[in-house]
Design a protein around this nucleic acid. Structure first.
Lengths: 182, 182
DNA sequence: CATATAGTTCAAGCCGTTTTGAACTGCATG
DNA sequence: CATGCAGTTCAAAACGGCTTGAACTATATG
């Protein structure tokens, strides 16, 4: 959620990728994924592998996406850890090849789930703690405590939004309805 | 959506604000708001004014939050522009005083609405354009076009999620149901 | 085992964003 | 109209995250 300044759309063309449209699509995925709080290039690597639908070497990726050796290594490590890229050994070749595995959305959901929820939970805890302390001090005026409570509700709303957000990314619409039924 | 590394919770204590709990609450708000893609200190300034529930001068804010003169000026300008902080002239005093106005959520929704939607719309347009070009080239294999389409659906899902997310922040649950009814 | 090539690590550099602080503007007051 | 204080502006500094590339490790091959 930080992307709000933008280079002209058609600007990033011609790289080394086949058609201009291929890198256009790849960059687009990079942008969505960055929006979700991941690195742009993680999205680009995944998109390249997914689009090509073939096992590529790190050297290939490095060349196509104009990234550094070390960078590719780290990006792939992340993607592997998240299970969206698979490392395969190809018949006679001595080097590793990489292949896009699952849908990106799945991994985005999983990672955001563990990452952002702890984050929001921490904020909520801090606010709860602050309110507890405020309540303990008899000098604190009642309305002030009420305002802290209001602030807590902002954090709660954020958490709710995030929950729904993740549920949606799972396309599990049913579960979302349940939330408002109980 | 980029906050995932964190300093110890109890660390930021004791500033100059009255109780430790006050700055704890203020920082918490700063963190939520940063999560939504705004500046941490925009959230902190708003939170201070909201918690105190009184009109404060820029100098007060500067002191309480340990910010620079210039910084406070710019932060307040932003908050004013968004309509969450109001500038008032107090009886005999020659300087301006500032007061928290609306609920933060409202402004977050408004700003995100205009900012993030254009962002996602642009990504979708790029992907659509890429697919169009791919389709025009007869050499492009059908499955590849299908994969671009799949990528488009990721962007679409993101947009949907964002919509629901904003609707939720408006607590307009009814409208959200409509979305899946039509 | 020597050599070559693939892959990893991490300190240093780069780059975009935020903050600072000094110069400046505007305004009220004596 | 000189003085002082509130508020603004903006270039430079600080900060933080990402990427680079050189040194290093691991692995395959003759």
């Amino acid at each position: 959620m930080k992307g709000y300044l933008w280079a002209p759309s058609a600007a990033t063309q011609s790289h080394s990728a086949s058609g201009g449209w291929e890198s256009m699509a790849i960059d687009a995925v990079g942008n969505v994924i960055e929006f979700w709080g991941f690195k742009r290039n993680q999205g680009r690597v995944w998109a390249l592998l997914y689009l090509r639908d073939e096992a590529m070497t790190a050297a290939d990726i490095e060349k196509e996406l104009e990234l550094s050796k070390g960078g590719v290594s780290m990006l792939i490590r992340d993607l592997e850890r998240w299970g969206v890229v698979l490392r395969v050994r190809l018949h006679g070749d001595s080097s590793w090849h990489y292949r896009a595995e699952t849908d990106l959305m799945q991994m985005a959901r999983r990672v955001i789930e563990e990452r952002e929820f702890t984050f929001i939970a921490r904020i909520r805890a801090d606010l709860a703690e602050a309110r507890k302390l405020a309540e303990q001090d008899p000098a604190t005026p009642k309305p002030k405590i009420e305002r802290i409570r209001k602030m807590e509700s902002v954090a709660e709303a954020t958490e709710t939004a995030l929950t729904i957000f993740l549920k949606t990314s799972r396309f599990d619409v049913g579960a979302m309805f349940e939330r408002f039924r109980g």
